[in-house]
Design a protein around this nucleic acid. Structure first.
Lengths: 296, 296
DNA sequence: CACCTGCCATAAGGGTTGCTGATGGAATAG
DNA sequence: CTATTCCATCAGCAACCCTTATGGCAGGTG
């Protein structure tokens, strides 16, 4: 179970080919073949069927373990190295699209005002990748968002020992096309919408919704990607519904339609859109200051 | 960051000596010295101060990562091997003391009645060890208990991909000495007891209590070990208070004192004593049957 | 049907790694 | 001051792992 062999294994499984993995890893095909053979001999089980190259059941199980294991290994290395790193005037943020709220942007602006020479990088990506980037030290701070019951913590993906802290909560609205029969309501109960057609989008995972509210929420259309405007356009065109934080799509009774979509507050169950901060141990410096500003 | 070097490192750190670690691991002292040197060279940091042998700050950080990392590595191996293991007429349970309730014992008895040749092993230990034993495949099923808000899941220690499922919830009582001024009450609010003196015991971790209710709960006495009778005896003798599931110490108004201690239900906040089942992927067999019986 | 091509397995060779055993130097106890 | 303990270092040797070269098998093609 050498991590070296493990990385080779996951690469082969991903490529579906020994030779492709060999070029990717900079080895010869022979070396890859021997490494896989060594791993299979170590476990006493075939992990890959050949021709075509596909993981066996045991191999599939190993794949599930290997990725997080290798991530944690990189995270451990990064964390140890961080103890000796010189404090830099650079900070990296990894954020989910809806995690980067106006309040966060504002606090970040203040931090930059206080340190004019501060270089800032913001990376937008999915929840898992945020956690991975923070764990590996590629980002100093991470912000993830999600639905939760009020004051309940999210369960950010586990990528090693990490500190999490709530940054903010706000109300949730159902995004509806402007002409929708329910668009004029002052509030809606989610239970009345379990049979409506919903968008499957990473910005509002239906799996989470089902875990909180119950089954239902059939999928109308699948959306991949980060862009909120795309999502709103899909809602406006009647492709399906989704939930958004109120600040993104203010309640329609106050503000009217935004780009053809309206937001209607959710009255029951009581849900909030929550943003949480993720970080490892931070040495004193701009990153720690910003973390304090965001949570304090 | 070879796991081999990592195990050597944690062994040396635990022993506080290169030579002692060498004998424990079956190497020569020279090999250990070289392995630690290799790890330090790899990370570019000193990990241990010599004479006396103690982890440096970076080493301490690495230690925090290494233990769970090695655990997950063993867990991954065990899980993969399990896919090919022949079904056995043996099941192993790892349980926290208060996780093994009468209902669980009863279901286990029924499982044994259905399969007379079934060998059963029950290991009582702490939460972390339960999770570790299940992860490593030493135990097929684990039962952990803890305080939670009603129908909120516990957060069992993370030792890799694992299934958790609620087994049961029951009310919580405050354990008081029979002569305590509040012992006759029909119910108590925890807020009225934050300034009382509490027992620090693994059976009811005060850290969890503080996370759920708030600060306070000063420590009167520290108790290490598993035994509930010891704990009740400590309460009865006035050494401090603790919380227990109602089935262990039935409400005093109904049953009077048990071994000099009485239980008074907690009216606020609403808390339950929850038991959760922990297991990896179970092949069809007695372990899977029992898991279904416990959660179904 | 023969041939070619792409792909993985295996064998042999060589460089590197990592162990043991021996020795040296520094700290500690008597 | 001496003896002892403990870690670092060195030399030597064995094991490991990668490369090059070759073999075997399956699928596509003329």
């Amino acid at each position: 179970m050498d991590p070296h062999l493990l990385t080779t294994f996951v690469t082969v499984a991903r490529c579906g080919s020994f030779s492709a993995a060999a070029t990717e890893l900079g080895y010869t095909q022979s070396a890859i073949s021997q490494q896989i053979a060594a791993l299979e001999a170590d476990l006493g089980l075939p992990l890959l069927s050949r021709r075509p190259v596909e993981p066996t059941p045991a191999g599939r199980r190993l794949l599930e373990h290997a990725e997080p294991l290798l991530l944690r290994l990189r995270a451990a290395r990064a964390d140890v190295l961080r103890t000796a790193a010189a404090p830099r005037d650079r900070i990296g943020l990894a954020v989910t699209p809806l995690g980067f709220t106006a309040a966060v942007a504002d606090r970040l602006a203040r931090a930059r005002a206080a340190r004019p020479r501060l270089e800032v990088t913001v990376v937008t990506c999915g929840r898992e990748r945020v956690a991975a980037l923070v764990a590996e030290g590629e980002a100093d701070l991470g912000l993830v968002d999600g639905l939760a019951a009020p004051s309940d913590p999210l369960r950010p993906p586990d990528a090693g020992p990490m500190t999490t802290a709530g940054v903010g909560e706000e109300d949730v609205v159902v995004a509806l096309p402007a002409g929708h029969p329910l668009a004029g309501r002052a509030a809606l109960r989610l239970a009345d919408l379990v049979d409506a057609r919903w968008l499957r989008t990473p910005l509002c995972p239906l799996s989470r919704l089902r875990a909180l509210v119950g089954d239902g929420f059939p999928v109308a259309l699948e959306h991949r990607g980060d862009d909120v405007r795309t999502l709103i356009a899909l809602v406006a065109a009647g492709h399906g519904l989704t939930l958004l934080p109120a600040s993104v799509l203010p309640a329609s009774v106050l503000n009217g339609a935004v780009a053809g979509a309206v937001g209607v507050p959710v009255s029951a169950p009581r849900l909030v859109h929550r943003v949480e901060l993720l970080h490892g141990t931070l040495p004193p410096g701009p990153a720690a200051d910003l973390a304090r500003a965001l949570t304090g």
